[in-house]
Design a protein around this nucleic acid. Structure first.
Lengths: 207, 207
DNA sequence: CCCCATATTGTCCATCGGGACACTATTAAT
DNA sequence: ATTAATAGTGTCCCGATGGACAATATGGGG
């Protein structure tokens, strides 16, 4: 099956052709020139904040090519985006900067009928039963426990890269309120800005 | 041996007394009231950007208490800070938000003559031989490879929480130049700001 | 009933961060 | 010898960020 990489940038092409020697690369879906019924494997690369483009591209591919399989490669993986991608018809969602070997694994899993999701997405879906499958569940950051429920929610949004404005919209509160919760969180955790907050909450090696 | 926590804030006290029931807590070294020759275990908690305080506190403890053991707890662990702590005489450096159980492990290791360092610090010290001990070395982010050497250096500083000004000082270049490298890195990696850059470079689950 | 933690919002302001539009110097490759 | 990539720097500008100083509302505990 032919691999087609759709990417607005070409920085990762080398990595991809390393994984799939006979892959073809196009800047957008509109540039693809293959038969409508040719079985094809689409790797759709999306930049941060391009959900609109993602959505339309997936729909476009499925409309034009009847035997297309789609995996989304995200620069900054986000749960909402993953959910969107899958609901649109993609069968995989993973980190755009994954090593070539990982992409090969993804391809195998997907061509065998699987749905491929990255670690974070899986944990999100698994949800509360996460403790059952995670090693050393006790060795986790205590940082979140120091925050009030609301502060925690806001801080977690920061730790996946959202801006104050975006968080405000998401929780339907003022940007000012977001700042208030963040200032309080900085104080409580002894950090100086949102980046350090994110580092603490993302630290998987809290050893 | 008596455990003494020196911390300018009290947010983590509960976590610590959970690990060491008979621990004492003081806001600063000057407040400690124990015999000069009493064997004691100091846990020195430092906020982000308090290297000066760290340095003087460690020196102060070693000067005043002849049988003191010192472990530094850092809110935002940094290699330079770890190196400083060790060179001043501390025998351990770990994340302040580590779980209580981890602190117990640290204590055991240190009281048995060990030097305790977190994962990141270890990798820093081990340096190039890292591949030898790391599982699945091939499954690592390709993000860094997309940057020029200089961009990479700058980006890595961002990924541990430094500001433009701090990076400029560290590399003895202008803040403007730091911005230039970062703008280029954002572009190359398809992210929108330093936080997302840091998330990509810190992502241990690039699966 | 009062106090306190929490949640929400406002204004003002200084700084930081990042894009736009240049320019110069060096080095490697064609 | 000209080009392309890399590195360094300058200025202007604007939006994002975070601190300072408040104020209001709510709900629970003493």
């Amino acid at each position: 099956m032919q691999d087609l990489f759709i990417s607005p940038r070409n920085s990762l092409l080398e990595n991809w052709v390393g994984a799939f020697a006979h892959a073809e690369v196009y800047p957008s879906v509109a540039d693809v020139r293959i038969g409508k019924n040719t079985p094809s494997f689409f790797w759709l690369h999306v930049d941060a904040n391009s959900q609109q483009w993602l959505s339309t591209s997936v729909a476009q591919i499925l409309a034009e090519f009847t035997h297309a399989t789609i995996v989304v490669l995200a620069n900054v993986p986000q749960q909402a985006e993953a959910a969107l991608a899958l609901s649109e018809g993609a069968v995989g969602y993973c980190h755009a900067y994954s090593a070539a070997a990982v992409l090969v694994e993804v391809r195998v899993a997907v061509t065998h009928g699987g749905i491929w999701l990255g670690q974070d997405m899986l944990q999100y879906l698994i949800g509360t039963s996460r403790q059952l499958v995670t090693a050393r569940p006790e060795a986790v950051s205590v940082a979140l426990e120091l925050l009030t429920p609301r502060e925690r929610e806001v801080a977690q949004q920061v730790s996946v890269g959202l801006s104050n404005k975006e968080i405000a919209r998401k929780f339907d509160i003022t940007e000012r309120t977001v700042k208030a919760h963040l200032s309080a969180s900085f104080e409580r955790l002894g950090v100086k800005d949102r980046l350090q907050l994110a580092l603490i909450l993302n630290d998987k090696s809290l050893n």
